[in-house]
């Protein structure tokens, strides 16, 4: 089974984001990075699928050269190979141009199953997986929380607000992974040593114009400081009063 996991480097959850000088990008200097949370699920599901069905897992990212750090982590967790579609202005790419570049590479590599995260935790667009499937002409199942894969297809569960939906699909397929699908493993020390021997290719991505261009980024307004209205049961009337007239939530 040829398996590809598409992953993205994002700022860490704790990172203090600063806006760049152009006002339309994030200042990458000193910004701590990690793999997007949902992409970690994609890697885990890819490796588990390989462990079950055999074959090969390639991790694919569009990003800067130093995201080899995140890819090494994926290789340490059991992926076989990694490829960076090298683009210095990767962060400014819109979902469409990213998906087109990924699709071109996936077509070249060949794939039965492509795993993506449900959404990247930085730009929160949840678009690349679905766009990718349409450019590839693959089936697409989004927000998967449970997966039964066979060499020719499988079934998946998706959690919707209305309940759990079970769907069947053929391969080739793009699966976007949601929280609950699996519990990603820790990279073990043996895996880290083994990853040293695996290759990370760097290639130029397909050039695609951005259709959607970021014009401006603003940080959310600072939250107002909290106020302690009093302590104990005696403070309840003051709290009610504040919730009613100040916060206007009652």
């Amino acid at each position: 089974m040829k398996i590809i996991a598409c992953v993205k480097r994002v700022p860490t959850t704790e990172a203090q984001v600063k806006i760049g000088a152009d006002g339309a990008s994030i200042d990458g200097a000193g910004l701590e990075s990690m793999l997007s949370f949902y992409d970690d699920l994609a890697i885990e599901e890819a490796v588990r699928s390989r462990e079950k069905h055999g074959g090969e897992v390639t991790v694919l990212t569009l990003g800067p050269s130093d995201c080899s750090k995140e890819l090494r982590e994926a290789l340490a967790k059991g992926a076989d190979k990694a490829t960076i579609l090298l683009d210095p202005s990767w962060a400014a790419r819109d979902a469409r141009s990213t998906a087109k570049a990924l699709a071109a590479k996936i077509q070249e590599l060949g794939a039965d199953v492509v795993f993506c995260g449900r959404v990247a935790t930085d730009r929160d667009q949840a678009s690349v997986g679905t766009l990718l499937s349409s450019y590839l002409g693959f089936a697409c199942v989004t927000d998967v929380v449970k997966l039964e894969l066979t060499p020719t297809g499988g079934t998946a569960q998706r959690e919707t607000e209305a309940g759990i939906e079970t769907v069947s699909f053929p391969v080739p397929v793009v699966i976007t992974c949601d929280k609950g699908l699996n519990e990603p493993r820790f990279a073990g020390l043996k895996g880290i040593m083994a990853a040293k021997k695996k290759t990370i290719d760097e290639v130029a991505p397909l050039a695609v114009e951005n259709a959607v261009v970021v014009q401006k980024i603003e940080l959310p307004a600072a939250r107002k400081a909290g106020r302690i209205v009093g302590e104990g049961a005696g403070a309840v009337p003051a709290l009610m009063e504040a919730l009613r007239n100040e916060a206007k939530v009652l």
């Binding site: 340490a76 820790f186 073990g188 880290i192």
Partner: peptide, 13 residues
């Protein structure tokens, strides 16, 4: 790089 990966793997565990 691999020394730091080892450190960080144990650190997150």
């Amino acid at each position: 790089e691999d020394e730091l990966m080892v450190r960080d793997a144990v650190r997150s565990w």
